[in-house]
Amino acid sequence: MSVQLSRDDVAKVALLSRLKLDDGELDRMTEQLGAILGYVERLSEVDTEGIEPMAHAVERTNVFRADVETPMLPREAALSNAPKTDGQYFLVPQIFDAG
């Protein structure tokens, strides 16, 4: 069984994922995602009525730390891997909106 994902659906997911895919990639991705999702469909066979979702492998609660300062990174280290910086800030192309 294979899930019917259109090329457009996949393109939308690519935008949401912020992945620029070329035409070949988009085609392959459409086919492969369809196959994988088709396989995953078998989960629908499982009766999960009343079963709590399990988001963590070990279900701990109440893990806190005290409000105490720990060492910070010097600015130089913070910016050391930045693709573009002026030595003070991370630089990105001009953005206007506040979204």
């Binding site: 003070q88 800030y89 630089l91 990105v92 192309p93 001009q94 953005i95 206007f96």
Partner: peptide, 12 residues
């Protein structure tokens, strides 16, 4: 994000 004109915006 700081927009002070120029070609780049700055991030603090």
């Amino acid at each position: 994000n700081l927009h002070e004109g120029g070609s780049d915006s700055k991030v603090d």
